[in-house]
């Protein structure tokens, strides 16, 4: 599997958020800012919407970089520091997962 760089990962995560925004009301749009909250008390997303963002990001990673990762997983959900906290954290997690795949 090819190496994934942070910028590509962030682009895929942003595309995932944008896709979910398409079906959200104008006053419920999720910011595309790197540090916008995806998960946690301040998150505008319910749990299903969060999963949809992560799933869409998986799809965009596959389309943009040809990299097939499972980012929506129990292992990720149960981490002490959630990799879904922000767009940045999710992109960093994708890079981490791709590095783990390469070294396996």
């Amino acid at each position: 599997m090819a190496m994934l760089d942070y910028e590509t990962a962030l682009k895929a995560v942003r595309a995932g958020v944008a896709e979910i925004n398409d079906s959200r009301a104008p006053d419920a749009q999720v910011s595309l800012d790197e540090d916008a909250t995806l998960f946690g008390e301040d998150s505008p997303l319910d749990s299903l919407s969060l999963v949809q963002v992560v799933m869409a990001a998986e799809g965009y990673l596959s389309e943009m970089a040809g990299i097939d990762l499972v980012l929506a997983s129990e292992a990720a959900m149960s981490r002490k520091r959630s990799p879904y906290r922000s767009l940045r954290n999710l992109a960093e997690y994708a890079v981490e997962m791709s590095e783990a795949e390469v070294t396996q």
Partner: peptide, 8 residues
């Protein structure tokens, strides 16, 4: 479901 869900 991941693929289908994106098209609802």
């Amino acid at each position: 479901a991941k693929l289908m869900g994106r098209r609802k």
